[in-house]
Amino acid sequence: MRSADMVATPNSLSTKAFGFVGDLFIGAYILSVLDRVVVPTLADYVAFPLSPAHAIAYIVFAILFASTSLLMGVSLSAAFVRKTLPDGISRKILTHIGYFLLSISIIAGWIITDVSPIEFFSGKGLAGAGRIFGALVTPEFDIIGQALATMVETIYTALMATLIAVPISFLLSFPAARNLMDGSRPKRLIYSSLRVVLNVSRSMEPIIWAIVFSVWVGIGPFAGMLALVVHTIASLTKQYSEQIEDVDSGPIEAISATGANSIQTIWFAIVPQCVIPFLSFTIYRWDINVRMATIIGFVGGGGIGTLLIQYQGLAKFHEVGTLIIVITFVVWILDVFSARIREALK
């Protein structure tokens, strides 16, 4: 039965090899969860730094686990590569390994995140929560002027970030579209390197960029805006270029056939098919940017977020309540508006 499995996969050797390596990690994971998290909690022993003997034990266990899986034909990682589970008893064993991994992960998660129902429901804790919620629902409206002024700052930070990012994303989206860059090797190279840069800068959260820029240009809305610009360029370029990859190729053929050059072909055959989706993405991105600008304020990006973190630090929860109401209201209004506009654009 196992040999039948192997026949069914085209790269049985590489699948096996990958499965073995993957299983090594699974084995090491199982032992580390037991050794570092579960046992220390139960036996109340402090996990010491990894000694050579420990390391050897890990390696031996991992190899044992991976070899057993390989020999029994129940490699979880190999199934992951094949994207299908084997049939029969192997399937049952694999499912059980899966459940086992899930169970120990839940146990480890519970321990690591210090989940504590006692603290959650303690009288002292509940009283504290009551105080804060009470303060939040009895907002201090003396600061409403300040709240609105900083909210306006946040909205415009988001707007400027979006407006600055749009033309840059527009220009970048064409070299980032696979269907336009498939022609030659240098084109493909530009496409791939651009994709890598975009993916990396998109994986870096705007809040990280905000920390970088608040050191660079000083705390304030400008730092927040720059952080959003970077993230927005990365996100919009991806969305724009995917839209370009999706266009109907018929008009491209037709416009090329008239003797038009490549810029004319992009402008007359591709752009008309993309304008509306581009607009829709852009409005949605502004909507997202307003929310992000609020969060970015926490780390020095200016606007209402900075004000909120200041009042929170002073434990002035009535003021915090006012700010939360303003933020919630504005975000809700923007959400409704942007959804409406995008609907109308369809």
């Binding site: 018929g250 008009p251 053929e253 037709a254 008239t258 003797g259 055959a269 008309p272 509306i276």
Partner: peptide, 21 residues
């Protein structure tokens, strides 16, 4: 190449017009 294409008109099964224009 563009001059060559310019001398040859082409029509298609699916017309391939720019619908929004």
């Amino acid at each position: 190449l563009r001059t060559h294409r310019g001398q040859i008109g082409m029509i298609f099964q699916h017309f391939n017009l720019i619908g929004r224009h």
